[in-house]
Simulated scan of single mutants.
Amino acid sequence: MRNTTDLYAQIIKTQAKSLGFDFCGIAKAEFLEEEAPKLEAWLHENYHGKMAYMANHFDKRLDPTKLVDGAKTVVSLIYNYFPEKKLPEKEEDFKIAKYAYGQDYHHVIKDKLKRLLEILRDEIGEFGGRAFVDSAPVMERQWAQKTGIGWLGKNSLLLNRQMGSFFFLAELIIDLEVTADPPMVKDYCGTCTRCIDACPTDAIVQPGVVDGSKCISYFTIELKEEIPQDVKGKFENWVFGCDICQDVCPWNRFSKPHQEPKFDPHPDMMNFNRKDWEEITEATFNKVFSKSAVKRAKFSGFLRNLRFLQQ
């Protein structure tokens, strides 16, 4: 006869799948001892650039019990966003990271996580916990590896053998004891260095370590001031985010189109050419990106990015 913690694990995985999550792994909520010196060194090198929030809540990033009182379990989840059709990507076209094609994932996935918590409480009984999707100091990729659903690639992203890396990560941190999965200990990247070789700004400073302050995504989304001239001509027309290190990754040959209508791009975007982008008005920007993560850059930031690419 199976024990209760095994049963909880099965219920969580079954219900996560029913809500569209592709993978679900479970780990014991504990201090991430191995990650502490790595995070400290990364911050010490100023690889977070102007992302001051990355240096905040150091203890909370490493210890889930500081985010949820009495936390016993971290549930790590994968949700696919690989598009069926890419936006036009001719050499002269401006490009947007695939994760931002559709509606803002924070809202779409948070709603699913809240629903998952409701279903689990109905099936299991009352328990405490919180849902996270890139919304708090949670080391998502490290937890995902600890729950066995992937490994950290040389580009520091989580890779999954069945799906590659075009997916969102999300977590439930709960005070319920659940049987944990074995961690992913094997690195399936081998000697491949395609992501390192392809990065036009040399942001991947060593396998698994990214200097965030050199990343095209950082310049086009996080940086609020003018983009420095020393990276001029290196963006390969990425106007919001960047997928280069994922596009060249051999594991992404296994990517399959997502089944989430909310992640489909606004119809107008599919026909945008370079001229349309160059002449975009604030009204068009607000219409096309009304629910998109692109709004994070604001219209003024988007124009700054366009100007930089046109210089």
Rank of each mutant, 00 (worst) to 15 (best):
S255V: 01
K110V: 04
A293Y: 02
T193R: 15
A41W: 05
E140L: 10
F219W: 11
M1R: 11
D69T: 11
F127R: 09
I204R: 10
D268G: 03
N252T: 02
Q311V: 03
E177I: 02
D211Y: 01
I196M: 15
R130W: 00
D111V: 05
V74L: 12
F31K: 15
K146D: 04
M184D: 03
I124N: 04
G153I: 03
L306T: 08
F58T: 03
K98F: 05
E140N: 08
Q246Y: 02
V178W: 01
L157V: 06
R274L: 03
H48T: 01
T284G: 01
E222T: 06
I174W: 04
Q15R: 15
I280L: 14
D175I: 03
F166R: 08
I221M: 13
A36M: 10
L43N: 07
I216S: 07
P37Q: 08
L62Y: 08
K291D: 04
I221N: 07
P200V: 08
P137G: 05
L39C: 01
H258C: 12
A203I: 09
K98L: 03
C245W: 03
V133D: 03
A97M: 10
M51W: 08
L169F: 06
A55L: 04
P200F: 14
W143H: 15
E123S: 15
K17F: 04
L169N: 02
E118A: 14
N46S: 12
E84R: 14
E222Y: 10
C195F: 06
A16F: 01
F58L: 10
E45L: 06
L172D: 07
A198C: 05
Q142N: 14
I204V: 06
E35D: 13
G190P: 02
Q145L: 03
T284D: 12
F21K: 11
L120C: 08
S213L: 01
R61L: 01
P200W: 13
F302S: 00
E260W: 04
K232N: 05
W277L: 13
A55W: 03
P207C: 13
A36V: 06
E123G: 01
A55V: 04
D6H: 10
G128E: 13
D63R: 07
F168A: 09
E236A: 14
G20D: 07
L169I: 05
E33L: 10
K298V: 01
F31E: 05
Q310D: 12
E33P: 00
A9L: 05
L223A: 10
A9F: 03
D247C: 04
